[in-house]
Write a protein that binds this DNA or RNA. Structure first.
Lengths: 246, 246
DNA sequence: GCCATAAGGAAGGATGATCAGACCTTTTCC
DNA sequence: GGAAAAGGTCTGATCATCCTTCCTTATGGC
């Protein structure tokens, strides 16, 4: 009993985590974040029409006035625009405004974001190897082909890459993992969009995608994990070379 | 361009995730959750004295009145008790009140919680294989020894098991993974505490711990992943056998 | 034995986020 | 030309949270 406590206390910094500041996001902040991330990741494609405000606020479980504040913020930043009248609506801006450079806070924690990414993607890899349907794998393979055709157009590539990774998460059937994946990609894309990605880098990255899908098709978890680890680490190394040391 | 959009839409259910209800937890809820989970997981051991309210509210970044509401709730439920006067304070109750049975909501999503667990633990396994210091591994090994001595006392075993897994997360040096691990363990323990765990099951579980540490010591990521996957799946199978089908 | 001190306990008003709802304005379709 | 469907506006109520001040209780030092 006593020795256990002694042993434990050598390792534990847990109280720091337990007593760390409580970060309660307001509904407004969370909404701006959700919609903004989805738009920036291309999950809501340019020119997409959002549901009418009265419907959307019901879906999000917030008051219309709160939703409108969020929409106003995203219109202000040029990510959305609204038109009035019967055939009006709120649309994802096309083209999108240029991405903002990574914030100092993000640069502070980018290594931890990469760690988190490794976790999410590995979990997805293992579960997709176990559960992905052949149909889902076919769709994802088609996406990999599309990626190959976009090796010279980084913004198209990046968008499809996000779809591929989110698609993998969806193939696991776990909504929580999809959510984790989108949030994590949202955090990452602030970094990834800002570094040079020559043709060769993208080509080798997509070759890893292909190997990953092959492993998934054979339901080979171990290989899927290996390929995914390689894939994530490659990105990490590229980032490490180009960002201020963390 | 167009074909990409077509391919993507076959796979994507993302809008469901994007437009899912925003759960804005209030500061009070989040505080009760944080402290309650830490207590139930034994990260704050029985009879531990919390920091004085005036200090704690500063650390948590909330008003004292809000903190007091949280403490009141946890006192109400028997997890804390407070004494007044100069040598007084707020203490973790000893003994703790009996755990509540798993909620229907938890039973609804327990499989997804297990999926999330797999992700967190795999990420931790890989990163710990890469980064864990020998000293940290020694401490964790001592914990495994302690676990062996607790094979017949489930509540002690469970507590040390949690410490082991959180300790692994800490060994990665990633605060976000520690947070993810504790939150996930919090969600899981509502399930785990409520199923029978005979000596043999615990023994084989702890043997996996031992093999995991061996792999980490050799910095063998692949083996760490394999052992961890096995370990998580074993728990999952035990749960699957004893919980209503999900 | 007294009293400063350190702790929990309690009450007030100020503020801002959020909500619910009614209403206005613009455009389109029949 | 009018109903319908969308965004745009306003108002008042409510609630969570904060800040500040004060009260009560026990302890430890002189």
């Amino acid at each position: 009993m006593t020795d256990r406590a002694a042993v434990v206390s050598e390792v534990l910094v847990a109280p720091d985590v337990v007593f760390a500041p409580v970060r309660s996001q307001t509904a407004l902040e969370e909404t701006v974040d959700r919609l903004g991330t989805a738009i920036k990741l291309g999950l809501l494609a340019p020119a997409t029409r959002l549901p009418p405000e009265r419907e959307l606020c019901a879906r999000l479980g917030i008051a219309r006035s709160t939703l409108r504040q969020a929409l106003a913020a995203l219109s202000e930043s040029g990510h959305l625009h609204a038109t009035r009248g019967r055939a009006g609506g709120t649309f994802v801006a096309d083209p999108q405004p240029p991405a903002a450079p990574p914030s100092p806070e993000l640069l502070e924690v980018w290594r931890e974001v990469c760690d988190e990414r490794l976790a999410v993607e590995l979990g997805v890899a293992v579960l997709a190897a176990e559960r992905a349907t052949p149909a889902a794998l076919d769709s994802l393979a088609a996406l990999v082909d599309a990626l190959d055709r976009a090796l010279d157009d980084f913004s198209t590539y990046r968008q499809a890459d996000i779809h591929l990774h989110v698609g993998l998460a969806e193939a696991t059937g776990s909504a929580r993992l999809v959510k984790a994946m989108t949030e994590m990609q949202g955090a990452m894309s602030g970094l990834i969009s800002f570094i040079a990605h020559p043709h060769d880098v993208l080509a080798s990255s997509n070759a890893q995608h292909r190997r990953l899908l092959a492993a998934l098709r054979e339901r080979d978890e171990a290989r899927a994990v290996r390929v995914m680890t390689e894939h994530i680490r490659a990105t990490e190394h590229v980032l490490a070379g180009l960002l201020p040391a963390g």
